[in-house]
Design a protein around this nucleic acid. Structure first.
Length: 471
RNA sequence: GGAGAGGUCGCAUAGUGGUCUAGUGCGUUCGCUUGGAAAGCGAAUAUGCCGAAAGGCAUCCAGGGUUCGAAUCCCUGCCUCUCCGCCA
């Protein structure tokens, strides 16, 4: 169990905020509704408000006393009379004890505040668990196989491209080696994603396809650190609930990212963008690390659920009025990538009960895996995109400043909205390719869109099949 | 890992116990000036909290300590730079 020390953060983070305090005070019922919809006890709101109120009373008292102290200190410059000194000493004593009790309240208030998750957007379906997620659409043609399609693990056994047994010797369960063409598939997917996300024309076309009036600014490729500090992890909203999912290096105070979202989002902490710099879009590539502590017994075989995998991740910083469209654009890109790969998928609207702490809205994409369920096929999650609105931005103090005057003045900087979405989780994408592109012989045909990368291997007829080593 | 230097208001710098409610320069904004601009002149220019407001309080990397009083003194941590060592 990892323990995050919020109190250490508290003093440096008093400038920061989680949910807007003023909003919680003015709209407690709305906050309770949103929290309850996420299956979190709405009484936390009352707990926070009580502590908030007590703390404010203390702050006023302390400020008043400090003001007195400043007055006496100023007198002291002129006269060091004994009555002035004794008054100063009395104030100091009172202050010391008052400040102590204020600090205690501040800690309690801080952790109560910190425990409140982001609120779901009003249009998100209210639901208890993933069972109440709804299917927004199904897309792509499921191939008709004239044989029973095999599970990717069965295929790789013969093809010798994924090895979990040796990985178990070296690292334990839930790890894998990717060999040969499986490794090349990873590089091909990276190549394909970058060609897509760096191309303004493609992004513009995707926006048009989805009827979005939105900038077609390309993504900036980034390879971020995978070890990040506590403040950054906390700021991205991953340190409170679900901390047991995170690998930590206690000795160094560092944490392994579960997704490059965490290191990309946190890199702009404390910064203020100019409005014209937005949207700011990144596509990150990194290894991702997950303890999978809560998933004992789930997907224990193979590489569907592993402790380490590589992922290409989209991340956007946008102004608040653009975040819903940005979310749809990211979903649109995910769908574009899947449709270009010609893998059938469905899009899920994630209900409130299945949202994480930082998300206000979320869509998942599940790819069709024909080899699962004894060849009957099954949908499995491959993509996920969340709009965290201003939740992460508040915790990390990321704002943007408008150059447009309002009432003859520049408005003060506002919090940005931050969004993330999977381009490809490589392992799962490779699984989807293997199962959807398998042949009766147990070979894997390379998808059309990935062919350019495999150009040097293309055989007669411009095709290339992954085959067992003896071929 | 060893030795040294340093972290001050957007940037650059001054500041070694009360005169710092932090000076100066640059940048930025507004005004004057101008046919228009530049220059010049004048003014403004951090954030957070409490407050209806007036105003008050806090913040000089962070945390702790000394003191009636800390940017300044002491301790700890983090970060940056220079040199040495090790290293893809």
């Amino acid at each position: 169990m990892i323990r995050f020390n919020h109190y250490k953060l508290q003093a440096t983070s008093y400038k920061l905020s989680m949910l807007d305090v003023e909003f919680i005070r003015q709209n407690p019922d709305q906050v309770k509704e949103g929290i309850a919809a996420k299956n979190i006890d709405p009484k936390l709101v009352d707990k926070f408000l009580k502590l908030d109120n007590d703390w404010r009373v203390k702050v006023v008292a302390v400020d008043h006393l400090r003001s007195e102290q400043n007055t006496v200190t100023a007198e002291m410059k002129k006269s060091k009379a004994s009555d002035v000194i004794s008054r100063a000493q009395i104030i100091k004593k009172q202050l010391t004890s008052l400040e102590k009790s204020m600090a205690e309240l501040e800690k309690k208030r801080w952790s109560a505040w910190s425990a409140l998750p982001n609120l779901p957007l009003p249009e998100v379906i209210r639901g208890k668990s993933d069972k109440e997620n709804t299917t927004a659409k199904e897309a792509g043609n499921k191939k008709e196989f004239n044989f029973i399609p095999k599970d990717y693990l069965v295929l790789s056994e013969v093809l010798k491209i994924i090895d979990v047994k040796r990985a178990a010797k070296v690292s334990g369960s839930r790890f894998g080696y990717f060999f040969g063409d499986a490794a090349l598939l990873e590089f091909a997917l990276i190549d394909f994603v970058l060609k897509t996300l760096l191309d303004e024309k493609i992004i513009s076309a995707i926006a048009k396809e989805n009827n979005l009036k939105i900038s077609a600014k390309p993504f900036i490729p980034v390879i971020p650190p995978v070890l990040i500090n506590r403040e950054s992890m906390w700021g991205m909203g991953y340190a409170d609930r679900g901390a047991e999912e995170i690998y930590s290096l206690e000795k160094d105070g560092l944490f392994l990212v579960g997704t490059s979202e965490q290191s990309i989002g946190a890199m702009h902490q404390g910064e203020t963008f100019k409005e014209q710099e937005l949207p700011l879009r990144y596509v990150g590539f990194s290894s991702c690390f997950r303890r999978e502590a809560g998933s004992y017994g789930k997907d224990t075989k193979g590489i569907l659920r592993v402790h380490q995998f590589d992922k290409l991740e989209m991340f956007s910083f946008v102004s608040p009025e653009n975040s819903k469209n940005e979310h749809k654009l990211i979903l649109g890109i995910e769908e574009y990538l899947m449709s270009k790969l010609e893998i059938p998928y469905r899009v899920l609207n994630i209900c409130t009960g299945d949202l994480g702490d930082s998300a206000a809205a979320k869509y998942d994409i599940e790819a069709w895996l024909p080899g699962q369920n004894n060849g009957k096929g099954e949908y499995r999650e491959t993509h996920s995109t969340s709009n965290t609105t201003d939740f992460q931005a508040r915790r990390l103090n990321i704002k943007y400043a408008s150059e447009v005057f309002e009432n003859g003045k520049k408005p003060s900087p506002k919090f940005v909205h931050m969004l993330n979405g999977t381009a490809f989780a490589i392992g799962r994408a490779i699984i989807a390719i293997m199962e959807n592109y398998q042949t009766v012989e147990g070979f894997i045909k390379i998808p059309e869109v990935l062919k350019p990368f495999f150009g040097f291997k293309l055989k007669d007829g411009g095709e290339y099949f992954i085959r067992p080593p003896e071929f």
